[in-house]
Design a protein around this nucleic acid. Structure first.
Lengths: 135, 135
DNA sequence: TGTAGGGCTTCCCATGATGGTAAGGTCAAG
DNA sequence: CTTGACCTTACCATCATGGGAAGCCCTACA
């Protein structure tokens, strides 16, 4: 299996597969005589694991930890759960931030006429309390 | 006002103020004889506008558009509202993505014993349907 | 047998927004 | 006149990804 086929099978671009190899996330595969990377089913399986972890928002660093736990048959599931739980907390923090932004913006947009007149509460908010000038 | 004081007053680091200048988001301020940047109240006002926009999640690009609208006294509020509305949509898309991740992860974490045993539904999910090996 | 195309290789550059650091000039207070 | 805090530029790093160039390789087809 060439890198293109491994990319196809895993959903990770060839570019990123090479990158993951370069940073040590995955092991370097064997090469053909003409220096082409060759992947087998196990390696593609690892790639799909990575793809799934990335899709769930784990960073490459976190993915690396999960991969190590996956490959360590004697891990405690508590370790995995700890990584996942920490990640959930990060995501929820991020969501709360974004929701705060949306809340404010919706309020401002609601107050904005959205017509041909220049008067705009959105800009007034951005300009802050000393909203006297526009340069 | 030196850059440090402008940074203090605006909440934007001196580093970022120089960066914003380099990319043309803000105009280059006057310099003292010894080449120090000098800011006046108007320029700090612009910086605070930028800070607020960034805090609400607008990209520098979007902020630039908002800034131009702010400084164009004859803009139509509809234009501003359009930028804001588009941004709200982006944020909501992002939130939905993250919530999808959280939903999946919470389910998996719930199913995971989190004990000393190796059996772990989280890893099973990441490994996908062909979850036969761990290398 | 030659060639055209597509795939592979490496290497470098870019993104977006920010932080860090180093080497050097400047200013104010003591 | 020195010390320390500030300023200047220039470069590098982040994180994960894409783009492109230059050159090699393989296959299919005429």
């Amino acid at each position: 299996m060439n890198i293109g086929q491994a990319a196809e099978a895993s959903g990770i671009s060839a570019k990123m597969i090479r990158y993951y190899e370069s940073i040590g996330l995955i092991e370097a595969p064997l090469r053909t005589g003409s220096n082409y990377r060759v992947y087998d089913a196990d390696q593609v399986h690892v790639l799909r694991f990575i793809k799934r972890a990335r899709t769930l928002g784990f960073s490459v660093e976190e993915t690396s930890r999960l991969l190590a736990l996956w490959q360590d048959k004697s891990r405690a599931s508590a370790e995995v759960k700890a990584v996942a739980t920490a990640h959930i907390a990060e995501l929820e923090t991020k969501i709360a931030e974004l929701q705060g932004m949306v809340g404010t913006l919706k309020h401002l947009a609601h107050c904005c006429g959205g017509d041909n007149r220049p008067n705009c509460p959105i800009l007034d908010d951005l300009a802050g309390p000393n909203s006297h000038q526009g340069h």
